[in-house]
Write a protein that binds this DNA or RNA. Structure first.
Lengths: 237, 237
DNA sequence: GAATGTGAACACATTCACAGCC
DNA sequence: GGCTGTGAATGTGTTCACATTC
C-alpha cells in the first residue's frame, strides 16, 4: 500500500473489476487468476495486477485471487462499504429519471432529495421512492439535514456553474454533472461530467468516416453461446 | 489533410471546440487565436492547433482562426452538416427522458422512435414531440422505414447485448449505450458507453480519500447561516 | 510582431516478460 | 507448474519551443 496518486483510469477499472467479480461470485466461483479474469471480460491481466498492486497484495502466487476477498477489498477501496446520499439539482426529465433509476442503489447510493426553482414542482414527490422536490434556495439546509454527500447537476448549461457554486458552498465534495459545460470546481471538490453532446458528436464523426475507425480496438467477437451464457450470469445484477 | 487514425480524445475535443466557437460567434467575435481560445476555456493552445492540424490548415499565421470558417470546418468534420435520426431502445425512465431532451436537436440529432417490449407502452406517444413507441420486435423494419442511423440503448444490463445484436442486425453503425456492461460490437460498429455506475463509484473512491486534494483553508468554511444567506443572494441574480 | 503548424521532449498509460513465491 | 507482483519496454497523448508564414 503506497500513497501515490491513483489515476482516474485506474479507479474506473476498479469499479469494473468489482462488477465482474460480483458476476463471478453469483456464478459460485471462489477463486480466479488475473489471466482468467482478463480472458473472460477482455481485459489485460498485467493491468489488473498492476491496478490492484497500488492498494496491496491481494493475490496468492500460484493460485490467484479469492473472489470474495477481492470483492471486499474493492468495495472498501471504492468506499462502497459506506452508503452515499445523493441530491439531484434539476427536477426536469433527466433529474426525475435519475431519481427513479435503481442502478444507483446497487452501489450503495440513495437519492434522498431533488431540487428545483419551479414553484409547480417544489413540494411534489417523485417516483416510486417518493423523493421530495425542494426549493433550490434551501439546498444548503437540506444537504445538512439529509446528510447529502453527492450532488447530481441536471440543469440547463447556462445555470450549471451557479448551481455548482451553491453545491460547493453547501460543503459537497463530489458532483456528477450532466450539463454540457466545463465547470470550475475549487480544490478538494471532484466534478465528473457526463457530456452526452460530446458522445453523440463523436459518433457522428465516426459515421462520417466509416473506413477509418473500423479498426479501432479490434475487439474479439465471442461465439454466440458464450454471450448467451454471460447474459444468464448477468441476470443477477 | 492526412489519412492517419484520429484518437477518440481528439474527436471529443473537436466537439468541445465547436461548442466554444458557437459561444464566441454568438458574442459577435469574428477571429480568435488558439492562445485566446485556450485561455478562455482553459485548454492548451498547442493541443488545439495539433487537433486541427490533423484535418487541414485552417488558420492564418500572425492572425488566428476565423470563427465562422472554423465552425463550418468542424461541423463538416464531425458530420454535423447532415442530420442524424435516433432510435431509443427502452422506453423506461431514462429512454423517455432522453426522447424529451432537446440538447440533441442543437447538434442536428432528432429522436424519431422509441422501442420497448412492454405491451402497455407500445403504441403510445411520448413527450412534446410525440415520439411513437414501437414493438422492439419490429426494430429492423422501423429502422429502415424511418431511416434511423443512431441507436441509444437504455435497457437493463442483462438484455443490453441482445438488444445490441438486434440493432447491429438492423444495420445500425453507431450506438450510445447506457447499460452498465461492456458490449461486444462487430467490426464497423461504434459503441460508446456512458456508464453512470463507474462515474459514481469513482466519486465514491474520491470521497473515501479526502486527504489527497483537500487543501481548503479551514477558515474559509462558513457557518451555516452565512451559507444560507449567500444562497439567497446568488439566486437573485 | 504575432500566431500558426510541427518536430522534439516530456509525461502518462499499457503491455511485456520474468524473478520470486506458493 | 502456475500465478503474482513489478521493473523494463513500448505505446499513446500532451506540451514545449521554434522555424515559418502572414
Amino acid at each position: 500500500m503506497k500513497s501515490e496518486k491513483i489515476s482516474e483510469l485506474t479507479t474506473n477499472r476498479l469499479s469494473v473489476y468489482l462488477r465482474c467479480l460480483n458476476l463471478l461470485a453469483a456464478a459460485g466461483i471462489k477463486t480466479i487468476s488475473s489471466q482468467a479474469l482478463a480472458d473472460q471480460f477482455n481485459m489485460n491481466s498485467a493491468q489488473i495486477r498492476k491496478d490492484l498492486a497500488h492498494f496491496g497484495e491481494f493475490g496468492v502466487r500460484g493460485v490467484g485471487y479469492s473472489v470474495d476477498e477481492l470483492r471486499r477489498h474493492l468495495t472498501q477501496i471504492l468506499g462502497l462499504d459506506r452508503p452515499h446520499r445523493v441530491g439531484i439539482v434539476g427536477a426536469g426529465n433527466l433529474g426525475t429519471a435519475l431519481a427513479n433509476y435503481n442502478g444507483f442503489t446497487a452501489s450503495n447510493f440513495e437519492v434522498v432529495a431533488l431540487f428545483d426553482n419551479d414553484k409547480e414542482k417544489i413540494g411534489r414527490r417523485v417516483g416510486k421512492a417518493a423523493v421530495a422536490v425542494h426549493d433550490v434556495r434551501k439546498l444548503a439546509r437540506v444537504v445538512r439535514d439529509a446528510e447529502i454527500d453527492v450532488a447530481v447537476i441536471a440543469v440547463p448549461a447556462r445555470v450549471a456553474q451557479r448551481v455548482l457554486n451553491q453545491v460547493m458552498s453547501a460543503g459537497i465534495k463530489a458532483v456528477l454533472n450532466f450539463a454540457p459545460v466545463r465547470l470550475h470546481a475549487r480544490l478538494g471538490v471532484k466534478v465528473k461530467t457526463v457530456d452526452l453532446t460530446i458522445q453523440l458528436e463523436s459518433l457522428s464523426y465516426f459515421l462520417a468516416r466509416p473506413q477509418i475507425t473500423c479498426v479501432t480496438n479490434p475487439r474479439q467477437i465471442l461465439p454466440y453461446e458464450e454471450i448467451a451464457q454471460r447474459e444468464e450470469q448477468e441476470l443477477q445484477s
